[in-house]
Simulated assay, not measured.
Amino acid sequence: MKETKLTFGQGRQLSTLLYYEQLVPFAQLYQAVKPLAEKIQLAMQVVQDLNQGYLPPALPTMAVTQADIDSLKATVLQRYPTDAVRGNHWWQSLIDSLPDLDQVLSNLRTYLIETFNMYGYVSQPLVEALGRLLNQQPVLEIMAGQGYLTAGLRALAPEQRILATDNQDWQDQPITAVKPVTSVEKLSALESLVRYSQEVTTILLSWAPDTSTADWDVLKWLRKHQWFEHGQLIVIGERQGATNSRKFWSQAHLTEVKTIQYPSFDIIDERLYFVH
C-alpha cells in the first residue's frame, strides 16, 4: 500500500531547485551503486517534497561512508570481473567524483535552511511518532519558527488543539525569510507561557537558538509556576551542540524519549528529550 503523504501547505512551488539540479549528474553517474543511488534519490525527493508542500521522508546518514565505498568497489568488480582495463577506467570515473558528491550531500541541511527555513529536520515519520506520543492532548509549540512541526501535527490530527508561537527574531538572520507554513502567533516564549500554559498538557521546544538563554528562561518559568505537576516539556535538539543555550543544557533534567528514533543524517545529533 502506498503511504499517504502529509501536507503542510503549498510549499514554495519554486520552478528551479538548484540543489536538485546539482544532484542530477550524480544520479546518472552512480545509478548502478545502490547505496549511493538511494541517498541521491532521497535527497532529491526531500527538496521536491518540501517545495510541493509535503513532509519529507526520514533520512539515513547522507555523507559518503566507507560502506558506500566498499559497495562501489563491489559494483565495479561485479560488472568487470575479468576486464581490469575497463574496470579501472570506470572505477576512476566514480572515485574521482566522490568528494564532490559527498560535499553536496553534506550540504543538504544548509540548503533546507536557506531555501525553506527548515532548521530542524521535520520528517513525516517523526511527526507520526510524535503524534502517537502526544495522543491527541492539547499542545503548545514555542519558538516554532516557520511552523513545520506544528503544521505536520495539525495535518496528522486536525481536531487536536495545537498552538504555535514565535517572536520571529530569526528573521533577522542573514537568510531569505519565507512565510510560515502554518498559523504561528507572534509571541515571545514567556508571553506564550503566560497566555497558554494552562490550556495545554505538552509544550514543544524544537531547535531553540544557541545564541540566547530564552530556553533557560522558559525552564525557570515552568519550574517557578509548578507547571510540571500537570504538564510535560519536550525538547528537540542537539545536547551541548548546535541548539539551545549552554545554561539550559547544564540545568535541565533530561530523559531521552526512547520511543522515538531521530536518526541524524549529518553531523548534528538531534534527539528528543523530556525536560523538567
Rank of each mutant, 00 (worst) to 15 (best):
S97A: 15
F116I: 06
E229S: 13
Q10T: 09
Y111Q: 09
E185N: 01
N88G: 15
E229F: 09
S15M: 11
A43P: 07
N167M: 09
A58T: 10
N244W: 00
Q13F: 09
T110Y: 08
G11P: 00
A84Q: 13
D102Q: 05
G241Y: 05
K247L: 13
E21F: 06
L36P: 06
Q92N: 15
D96S: 12
I95H: 11
N244R: 02
Y30L: 06
R161M: 12
L134A: 01
E185K: 06
D68M: 08
Y148V: 06
S192R: 04
L134E: 00
L187N: 08
A157I: 10
D49E: 14
P57E: 07
R246Q: 15
Q173V: 02
L126M: 14
Q198A: 14
F228L: 10
A63R: 09
T202K: 13
P174Q: 01
T165W: 00
R161L: 15
S97K: 12
K34F: 10
L205S: 15
H89V: 11
S71G: 15
R246L: 13
G131N: 09
L94S: 01
A208K: 03
T176M: 11
A144E: 05
Q124M: 10
S245L: 03
L59R: 03
T115Q: 15
G145T: 03
V33D: 02
L204K: 08
I40P: 07
E185V: 08
A155D: 02
T150A: 14
D166M: 01
K73I: 11
R79Q: 14
P56N: 07
A27P: 08
D215N: 04
T110C: 07
Q41T: 05
G11A: 02
Y54A: 12
I113S: 02
I236G: 14
Y30W: 08
E128K: 13
L140P: 03
T61S: 10
V139L: 14
Q160N: 13
I260G: 05
A74V: 07
A189K: 04
P263C: 09
A189N: 06
T202L: 12
Y111L: 01
L126I: 07
Q137V: 04
W90A: 04
V235A: 09
P81D: 09
G231F: 01
H230R: 13
R132P: 01
H253Q: 14
